[in-house]
Simulated scan of single mutants.
Amino acid sequence: MMRWIIPFILAATAAHASEDIADKYPGSLLYNKQFEVIPGVFSAIGATAPPTYENAGHNNNLSFIVTGEGVVVVNGGAAYGLAKALHEEIRAVTDEEVKLVFNENGQGHAVLGNNYWAEQGVPIVAHVDAAEVVAQYGGTILEDMKGYNKDRAEGTEVQGPTETFEDEYIVEMGDFRIEARYLGPAHSPGDIVIWLPEQSLVISGDMAFHERLLPIFADTYTADWLETWDNEFEPLGATYVIPGHGHPTNMAQVRRFTRDYLVYLRGKIGAHLEAGGGLADAYYVDQSPYARLDTFDELATKNAGRVFEQMEFE
């Protein structure tokens, strides 16, 4: 099984993903054509840049599992047309019908394609907290997407999940046992992972990053994320990781650029606080070890400021 993923890990290392490439799959709204990561598990790797018209909002990973008895999709996509484009890729791979869609969280690139899948009669599953995000902020998320996607937003409407869960949602289908798990607070409300225990593969969603700098939002509590990582995510012992953004890789790589980054930044901010530093200077603590990551310029100072505001009251 290792032979399937190793070429892609090496390719990702040798030719680091670049946020400067506008579109790598001009014949489709998808940013990248899907490929088979391990037998039966496919992923279309999104841009490591912010969402733009050129990448059609495909700046996260859209994955699917061909089980032998149906297809399970992970992420609804950032727009109706993007979900449709993914479905066309699925049909090119298999005659099996899509039986289920998971939303990895309540962010636009996970949920705004839901109404396409709902039109196909496919159940859509998400964590209760992600469903609440869609219910409360779906209209704003949609308008933001229309702002950059223009005509590529056509047909998109707010559609929440049709089913929700709190702790786990387990599917036995064909050759796969598919475990959707809520491990605890992480990057955003309702983050889940899709764990395939028999394949030792986790589709981590935004629990794990590596080729682009992770963003820390106003509702991202880094101490909780680290606790969830150490107590729940790392103990999975996954051999293969399909992260929320970037190429498939392994646990050591996402640990380095997710957990270790959070520990590093909290350490820098902690030292800054101990020295009596304020918010204005906190934005500029040294994050140079991570400067080569995509979206560093967009996110590093924001991340530092938000961690300062959190740790000031911890």
Rank of each mutant, 00 (worst) to 15 (best):
G77P: 08
G77Y: 07
A78F: 08
A78I: 03
A78Y: 10
A78P: 12
A79T: 12
A79S: 15
Y80V: 06
G81P: 03
G81N: 03
G81E: 02
L82I: 09
L82Q: 09
L82V: 15
A83W: 04
K84V: 00
K84F: 02
K84S: 12
K84W: 08
A85M: 04
E88K: 10
E88M: 03
E89W: 00
E89R: 00
I90V: 12
R91H: 02
R91S: 11
R91N: 07
R91L: 04
A92K: 13
V93H: 09
V93W: 07
T94Y: 03
T94E: 08
T94K: 02
T94C: 05
D95M: 06
D95V: 06
E96Q: 13
E96K: 02
E96V: 09
E96M: 01
E97Q: 14
E97N: 11
V98G: 05
V98Y: 01
V98P: 03
V98Q: 01
K99G: 03
K99D: 05
K99A: 15
N103K: 01
N103Y: 11
N103C: 14
N103T: 11
E104R: 07
E104P: 01
E104K: 02
E104D: 10
N105A: 13
G106V: 09
Q107R: 14
Q107H: 11
H109I: 09
A110G: 04
A110D: 13
A110M: 11
V111D: 06
V111G: 05
V111R: 00
L112H: 11
G113C: 07
N114H: 08
N114M: 04
N115P: 01
W117M: 02
W117G: 07
W117Q: 05
A118V: 02
E119M: 00
E119L: 08
V122G: 04
P123W: 09
P123M: 13
I124C: 10
I124Y: 02
V125Q: 04
A126G: 15
A126L: 07
H127P: 00
H127W: 10
A130D: 12
A130Q: 05
A131K: 12
V133C: 12
V133T: 13
V133K: 09
V133P: 06
V134E: 11
A135C: 04
A135T: 08
A135E: 15
Q136P: 02
Q136M: 13
G138N: 11
